[in-house]
Every structure is written in C-alpha cells, then in structure tokens.
Amino acid sequence: MSNKLIEIKDLSASIDGKQILKGINLTVNEGEVHAIMGPNGSGKSTLGYVLSGRDGYDVDGGSVSYAGNDLIDMAPEERAREGLFLAFQYPVEIPGVNNTYFLRAAFNELRKHRGEEEMDAVDFLGVVKEKMKLLELPDGMMKRSVNEGFSGGEKKRNEIFQMAVLDPKLSVLDETDSGLDIDALKIVANGVNALRKPDNASIVITHYQRLLDYIVPDFVHVLSDGRIIKSGGKELALELEEKGYDWITNGEAVAA
C-alpha cells in the first residue's frame, strides 16, 4: 500500500573509532510519523547525523536506502536536495548571514536540483510570509542573522520554519520540543502537523510524551545503547512516561 521512504538495515556507525550505533533496523513509509525515544547518550542524535551524512560519523556496516537511492554514498548536500531534512537539536549560528538570504539560497538549491528556475527575492518573500504565519514567527526574525542571538526556543522554531519552507520528504526532528514553552510547543506541533502529507514522513526524536500528544506518532521506538530495543504504537510512549526505561533496558539485559 504505502511506499517505503527509508529503509535502514542493520546500520552500525562509529565516531572516532568508538561504536555508537550497533545495528539499527527501521523502515519508514510515506505518510508515517515515527517517534524515537531513549535515554541520554543512546545514539538518537547520532542516528540523525549519520542519516544526514555528517563528517566524522563513519558507517561501519549495514545499509540505508532512501527513496530508491543508497543514502550512504551521497554527499550531505545531495541528501538535503533529495528532501532529507534534519531539524538540529542544537541549531548553529551563522553570524552576519541574513536569515532570509540563507533560506532563499537553500530553497533555490532544491529548486535547481529539481530542474526548476531559481526564485527571486520578491517571490520568495511571498513563500516566507505564508510559512511565517503558520509558525507565528515575528517579522523581525527574518531580518536577523541565522540563529544569531536567538533564544533556545526561537532557534527550534526557526528550524521548523525552515522545514516548512523547504518542504522535505523526510524530516528528522531532533528534540525540537526541548526548550519550547507550552504555547510554542503547540505552535510548532501544529506546524509539523500542517506539513504532514501522504507522501512525506517524519522521525521525531523526543524525551517527552507531551509532544506526542500533539504530533501523534504511528510508531514509537526505544533506542538504547545504539539499538532499537522496543517498538510499539503511540501507547508505548505513555507506558515509558509512567515506568521510565529501566523495565525494558533490564529486560533487554536479561534477554541478551
């Protein structure tokens, strides 16, 4: 019925020779939302970086097929142009680079990649205005430098705003909820929901069940020590909220 968007098979990866991911298996179909939860340091962000091709994150084994391509062979910018978007856990500041200018450059890279004409500044402003409304961003933010001096919550909101403009096929949201106040959380979640389409998908990394009340996942996975040790439906998140991770990680230890 639905098409596979990404298929991760037995993926292991290391940083500086230290193994972090130890055999991840995960398939995400178009139209789905998968939540990934798990203790600090279990490898959630690492998975996001490996999927987006960050330098220094070495794939030691396994495969990742994305929209029919071998993802591992692609340069980070090619992955981005093919619609893979990472909302960073810690968005980076680029001093002096205007937010709108930067985003238009990114937007036009994607258009060029699809064989479309670049969009000029005036038309692009139209696109931006619309998405700004969706995320209730103040006007001033687009005139500022990329993330420079933004509050933690503003940075996160800016990530989702970029996602809204770039319209990716697969988004990996790395703890987008942390640092957001209650109102901002609702705005961001509504934004993410509004962007859901039958042919795109998201992987939502979070520590809190609260976010999943707004962005309702189709699947919840628990990542621990570089492996997915449990998967279930949205009720798994509730169970984790109540009981913590011990009951599964212990169970895993016994099983192992």
Binding site: S52, E77, R81, V92, I94, G96, V97, A106
Partner: peptide, 21 residues
C-alpha cells in the same frame, strides 16, 4: 555541515559564512 544539510555545497557554505563575517 548546517549549511550542507540545507542543500548548500561546501564551497558555497564557506563563501556564505565569510561574507557574513
């Protein structure tokens, strides 16, 4: 990497960062 992840080639990313500077 941040700019790469948004679709910019490394050279363009460096130019953008330097121009911002």
């Amino acid at each position: 990497f941040y700019l790469n992840q948004r679709g910019l080639e490394t050279q363009d990313a460096v130019n953008m960062i330097v121009n911002g500077f």
